[in-house]
């Protein structure tokens, strides 16, 4: 499965894009990222108590925000692409 990092996430992962084994769902993916990249990524991905995905993290599965899919339980598949952004804006 394809995983893409953007903006400040790239400073932590030092990687723009990688292929990873398919996790069961979004929550499992993010938890594994927390283990791989440590506290630096956990503070961005999760709420302080670790129980929820942070409001400041934007997670897209195939271009759709998981908020409009099944949230943290959004299932993942080999053909999916997940994109992870911090809260960004501009215009």
């Amino acid at each position: 499965m394809k995983l893409k990092f953007f903006a400040t996430y790239r400073e932590i992962t030092r990687c723009n894009e990688e292929d990873i084994p398919v996790p069961h769902d979004v929550w499992e993916l993010l938890t594994s990222l927390g283990e791989r990249y440590g506290a630096a990524i956990r503070v961005k991905l999760f709420t302080p108590d670790g129980g929820k995905i942070s409001d400041d993290a934007i997670i897209l599965v195939n271009g759709r925000n998981i908020l409009h899919l099944k949230g943290k339980d959004t299932p993942l598949d080999e053909a999916d692409a997940v994109s992870i952004f911090p809260m960004v804006a501009g215009g």
Binding site: I58, L60, S83, A89, G90
Partner: peptide, 17 residues
């Protein structure tokens, strides 16, 4: 956020969307 990456930071999120 805007200080670090400017408004061009939108390119990727709008494209990925």
């Amino acid at each position: 956020g805007l200080a670090a990456l400017g408004t061009q930071v939108l390119v990727n999120i709008i494209n990925e969307s």
